[in-house]
Design a protein around this nucleic acid. Structure first.
Length: 497
RNA sequence: GUCCCCAUCGUCUAGCCAGGUCCAGGACACCGGCCUUUCACGCCGGCGACACGAGUUCGAAUCUCGUUGGGGACGCCA
């Protein structure tokens, strides 16, 4: 295979959404797999809608996901002269012509056709203009667009072998003479994209199936320009629950990569999820490390059919596609704890929960604590929220935990401080000692150990559930544990009052 | 309306190209059980699909045709 060069060409008209991220991911994987290059090209020719903020957001999103590029970002607007030159060349070579039909006139014709449920497409009025007529209109200062002259002599088809879909054909009679240059002289996407891909020596165009219709037109442009046509791979689209294409506009933050970063997703977990939306390795494997995936990835195994992004809303646990959450959980509890620690550290710093000692003298404690509590968390955010009691004293109390495990046993008002006293008297505050003491005390009081254990859990962590209580107590430490136990009275006052 | 693409559990999918080993496998979700001081994890089990109809064949999820359904495109957006 000649040098593999692929590109990701977002138009900077909004944040990076998961569909775009998935396209970027597939391109990146393909490049890596073949020791090729990924080119990032910002298609900013739509000056009306392009923003710097969007460019920054896209780059930030790609970087967060770990999708790296080898060249760029290039900006399409920087190559306008070349686009114009190629358009002129096409006109000079007879592959394109000037069209003087007004936009209003065409809109009207289109509306009429649509109204009558008729097929519509440019009728070729200006294609038949003689050189003299064209010269006359130009001399008169009439504005014009440039249309590509689709060769329809003898019919024929434009076809290509798509890496995903197989052979795709389209009759030239179904391709209208499409516009390649606006009346203001600015070339359009169909042309710019091809000119840029030729200049960037793109070998494989991997993009969504929504571009399928563009491909036949663009192949015509490649040929007219005398360039080699690249390989194509049209990926299936990601649809919403109503089977409509997901978009920034209609779905909002739930489809933004940024949202997942904010909600505490592990970058590669999101990439892994996105990968599975339309690709499988052919076996039952679903979790891949970067290296494993680069090794396993092949374009031919991309699915042909569209997939549904099964997101939910307003569910505390499944705030997005449950599969995405489950993959994130998988990484959360299997990744090397140092890597998790780095993500938690970043989050803690934004929340004012970070203690520099966690990086130095209390490093071991910090890592062990993360190891202890990560089992039942869903995202990185949970360390600061559900796990707050391990790192700070201003943790919240779950109402259900207090009601079920504290208020139900009024005696705990005395028992908890008494337990604190006993803990203080312990020569060593370790697992065995704590467990022995708790069980002995329960026996003396004539209650089940669970009453003291769960009561202590609610008081010390504010939560209904958590890791083994003895480990929790030792981890949080004697001083903090006893102080919290002695404040049980306030809890009664707060929730009973 | 025209053109293009697609069609397996609720969702993501394996199997399809090279028809039998598939009364269709896995994952997520859901339900039940085990474990357990709690909740998770883990393990075990359950629920649950070849869109429909013809044809080819001894045999079809797999091949062919049709129907239906879904999606995309049809811009002087990208």
């Amino acid at each position: 295979m000649p040098e593999v060069r692929v590109r990701f060409p977002p138009s900077p008209t909004g944040y990076l959404h998961i569909g775009g991220a998935r396209t970027a991911l597939y391109n990146w994987l393909f490049a890596k797999k073949h020791n090729g290059k990924l080119i990032l090209r910002i298609e900013d020719t739509d000056t009306e809608r392009s923003t710097q903020e969007s460019i920054d957001g896209i780059i930030e999103g790609l970087e967060w996901l770990g999708i790296t590029w080898d060249e760029g970002p290039y900006f399409q607007t920087e190559f306008s002269e070349e686009h114009v030159a190629r358009a002129r060349q096409l006109v000079a070579d007879g592959h394109a012509y000037k069209c003087f039909c007004s936009k209003e006139e065409l809109d009207r014709k289109r509306d009429v056709a649509q109204e009558a449920k008729q097929e519509y497409g440019y009728d070729g009025t200006c294609r038949r203009l003689s050189a003299a007529e064209v010269a006359e209109k130009e001399a008169g200062g009439q504005p014009f667009v440039v249309r590509f002259k689709v060769e329809r002599e003898g019919g024929g088809e434009v076809s290509f072998d798509d890496k995903v879909l197989g052979r795709v054909s389209r009759s030239v009679n179904d391709i209208e003479d499409f516009v390649i240059v606006r009346s203001n002289g600015k070339p359009l996407y169909l042309l710019c994209n091809v000119v840029d891909d030729i200049r960037d020596r793109i070998s494989h165009v991997i993009r969504g199936q929504d571009h399928l219709g563009n491909t036949s037109k663009q192949i015509l442009i490649y040929r007219a320009l005398g360039a080699q046509v690249p390989e194509f791979a049209h990926m299936p689209l990601t649809l919403d629950l109503n089977k409509a294409k997901i978009s920034k506009r209609s779905h909002g933050e739930i489809v933004a990569v940024q949202f997942y970063k904010q909600r505490g997703f592990i970058p590669w977990a999101l990439a892994n999820f996105l990968l599975l939306l339309g690709w499988s390795g052919g076996d039952d494997r679903e979790i891949y490390s970067r290296e494993e995936l680069i090794d396993a990835f092949v374009l031919e195994r991309i699915n042909k059919s569209n997939s549904i992004f099964n997101y939910r809303k307003d569910d505390p646990k499944f705030f997005t596609d449950p599969k995405a959450i489950s993959i994130n959980e998988h990484y959360l509890r299997t990744m090397p704890i140092e890597e998790i620690a780095a993500l938690v550290e970043a989050d803690f710093k934004t929340q004012g929960l970070w203690d520099d000692a966690y990086g130095t003298t209390r490093r071991a404690w910090f890592l062990e604590t993360l190891l202890l509590i990560r089992e039942r968390f869903h995202t990185i955010k949970d360390f600061a929220e559900m796990g707050r009691a391990y790192f700070a004293d201003d943790y919240a109390f779950e109402e259900a935990a207090v009601r079920k495990n504290v208020l139900k046993y009024p005696e705990l008002k005395e028992w908890m401080p008494a337990l604190a006293d006993r803990f203080d008297a312990l020569p060593d505050f370790n697992l065995e000692a704590v467990e022995g003491l708790l069980r002995t005390m329960a026996e003396e009081l004539g209650v089940k150990p669970g009453v003291l254990i769960n009561g202590a859990r609610a008081v010390v962590t504010g939560r209904l559930a958590g890791p083994s209580m003895f480990e929790v107590l030792v981890t949080i430490g004697r001083a903090r544990v006893t102080a919290r136990l002695r404040q049980v009275g306030e809890l009664f006052a707060r929730f009973e009052g």
